[in-house]
Amino acid sequence: MNSLMVAKIIRVATIAPLMAFVSLLLLCIFEPAVYGGWFQFSFALLFLVVLPVVAYPLQPIVPGFRDKGREGQRNFAILMGVLGYVFGILFAYVTNAPEGITMIYWIYFISGIGIVVFNKVLRIRASGHACGVVGPISFLIYFLGPIAFIGLLLIALVYWASLKMKRHTLAELIWGSAISFIAVIGIILVFQ
């Protein structure tokens, strides 16, 4: 297997919804108080994993996105992700969800808005992929402690794979990473 194929596998295995699934599952196993029960965990999966994932099969049939190729797919995935995050925040407040999962919804929402602002408003290309990896690893470090620092290795692999496939420049990866890292730190400070 050549290095380009390895890079492609790493990128596919670390798409934002899959990273959300893995991080939510790890929290469910090792820090279940984040959810307060299966009800909140199930809806977190719906809002942070399922809604963003359905963007990929739906994009070819949704007017305004279907004829836009990879860029249409990227834009529709961002839109569906942000909608999921908004629904998650609303759901958290309506159901009086525990603070931990409420924080996670806010982290995803601020990160998603940050990606939109950088890419569409400021016209600075920030990597949504890096954002979708660094955010979950950052909040896993917050909730699980030093053991989650192992995720830094995954971040390094994502950077390598993205650069190898020429999907992003180093600056785009850093911008995307910074957006989610700042969102995590900001939400931690707000909730403290």
Rank of each mutant, 00 (worst) to 15 (best):
N2C: 12
S3V: 02
S3M: 07
L4Q: 13
L4G: 10
L4K: 14
M5H: 15
A7C: 12
I10Y: 06
I10K: 09
V12I: 14
I15R: 12
P17N: 14
P17G: 14
V22R: 05
S23R: 04
C28V: 01
C28A: 11
I29E: 04
I29C: 02
E31A: 14
V34W: 09
Y35L: 05
G37L: 04
W38P: 11
W38A: 14
Q40F: 15
A44S: 15
L45P: 10
V49P: 11
V50S: 08
V54F: 11
V54M: 13
Y56M: 13
P57R: 07
Q59R: 12
Q59W: 02
V62P: 01
V62S: 03
V62G: 10
G64S: 14
G64H: 02
F65H: 07
E71F: 02
G72M: 00
G72N: 01
A77E: 08
A77M: 09
I78Q: 06
I78L: 15
L79K: 05
L79H: 07
M80A: 09
V82E: 13
V82Y: 05
G84P: 11
G84N: 08
Y85V: 01
V86R: 03
F87W: 13
G88A: 03
L90N: 05
A92N: 14
A92C: 13
Y93P: 01
Y93M: 00
V94D: 01
V94N: 05
T95G: 00
T95E: 05
N96V: 08
A97K: 05
E99K: 13
I101G: 05
M103L: 07
I104S: 02
Y105W: 13
F109T: 01
I110L: 15
I110F: 14
S111Y: 02
G112R: 03
G112F: 04
G114S: 10
I115W: 07
L122M: 15
R123G: 01
S127L: 01
G128M: 03
A130K: 03
C131S: 13
G132P: 09
V133Y: 10
V134D: 08
V134H: 05
V134T: 10
G135Y: 12
G135V: 00
P136E: 00
L144N: 10
G145S: 11
P146M: 07
I147Y: 15
G151Y: 08
L153G: 15
L154P: 08
I155V: 12
I155W: 10
V158C: 08
V158F: 11
S162C: 06
M165G: 07
M165S: 14
K166F: 06
H168E: 09
L170Y: 12
W175M: 03
A178W: 04
A178V: 14
A178I: 08
I179G: 01
S180A: 07
F181I: 11
F181H: 05
F181Y: 12
I185Y: 05
G186L: 07
G186E: 00
I187R: 06
I188A: 01
I188F: 11
V190Y: 07
V190N: 00
V190S: 02
F191T: 10
F191H: 13
Q192D: 07
Q192L: 06
